[in-house]
Computed example of a mutant assay.
Amino acid sequence: MSNPLRSELMRAWAGAAVARGLLLLALFAGSAHGEPVTRRSASPSTFHFVVSADDTSYLVLADVEKGADLPPHGPLRLTGEESLPSVIAEVSEAHLPADLRAWSKRKVVVDERCHATVSGFALVVRLVGRPDYAGINDSEWTADTVFSAGQKVLAARLDRCKGTFARAASAAPIRVARPAVNEEAVAAARADFLASEVIVQARKEQAEGGVTGALEQVYAPHVVTVRHPTTGETWISLHLRLGEAGCGDPQANVWGLYRVTARGVERTRLRLLAPQQTLDALLDVDGDGQFELLIQDDFGFSRELRSGEDKVIRRVTMPIYECLC
């Protein structure tokens, strides 16, 4: 029997795929700038995620994990679709933690291409799914149940701009990868990628699992070639999914990054992504000449910024209360 929410989520995935394509085009063709973050520490940062609620963009200032962390706030306002609800509760500047008050009326840059101004603050709570999967005995979400079950963030409301990440306009630029062409290096990187132990093992598991097309798919990784805007180095990203996404079906989702040197290509990273993860962009957030990864799940519900050592620097998530099979 078909799952109506899964169909709805697949439509959301299609929209997210278009948004990812637009983001990649904008970023790989874009300019360079940089600052802010999701909080667990009050230290300054050059990166913040941007989330959307009620057709408005919010720059995420801090995760609010415990009730004790909640600042005084206004009434809960329920918005969004039935299976993608959000709750917004206004927070006055006076009730912000002291280290966040400086964000009032601050100029920011979204996705290194759109300038906005902070126009207020709010608690933003988001989730996806149905109340019964969250253990709530109700057929519809309410403001109170979404507030209880959703992911809470303290956020700065932006007066314009839609996007994925932002920084304070006064901060150092986030260096954004730019398009490059090097067919010879791409051929060498692809050959190394496909011959890697990770891919070989993935192919073996796909074949043993009886996944159709496993052998053909391996020859067509998605390749993006970029140049670092300050070092001038050329980098090659390869991303390959094996198998059909489905419950219990064997899958592999492999990503690799290569640097082009005078001696050829050098593999710098090779890792398995989670089944639904996709690389959105390569960003040099701290200006050290190395790229951080901007990763998003297929539906756009969860996003991560990862370091070169594969550590999660920032993460924004949405609880999913639904079986997606």
Rank of each mutant, 00 (worst) to 15 (best):
A16N: 14
R227L: 02
R314M: 06
A166S: 15
A42K: 05
R113T: 12
Q290G: 05
Q201W: 01
L257G: 01
A171W: 05
K66I: 00
R160P: 02
W103I: 04
Q251A: 10
A122H: 03
V312D: 03
P71S: 03
A155R: 00
F49S: 10
D286K: 08
L78D: 13
D132R: 11
V226T: 13
L294Q: 03
P36N: 03
W235I: 00
R167F: 06
A29C: 09
P36W: 06
Y58K: 08
R269L: 14
E304L: 15
I236N: 05
Y321W: 13
E82I: 13
D249A: 11
E266F: 03
G209W: 09
G74E: 07
L70N: 01
T56R: 15
Q217I: 00
D249Q: 09
Y58G: 01
L24S: 09
A169M: 09
L96I: 10
R303C: 01
V176Q: 15
D55V: 09
E81N: 11
A195L: 03
V223Y: 04
A29Q: 04
I295Y: 00
F121H: 01
G150S: 10
E35F: 11
P275Y: 09
G120F: 02
H228R: 08
G150D: 06
D192I: 02
L76A: 12
H115I: 07
G129W: 06
Y133F: 14
R203P: 02
R77T: 14
R126F: 04
P44D: 12
V124T: 06
A89L: 08
V285K: 02
E197Y: 05
V186W: 01
S43Q: 14
L76S: 07
R11G: 02
L242H: 11
T164P: 03
A116I: 07
V51Q: 08
T261N: 10
R130A: 13
G67R: 06
R306Q: 13
G308C: 07
L27H: 12
G120Q: 01
H48L: 11
S57H: 05
L27R: 10
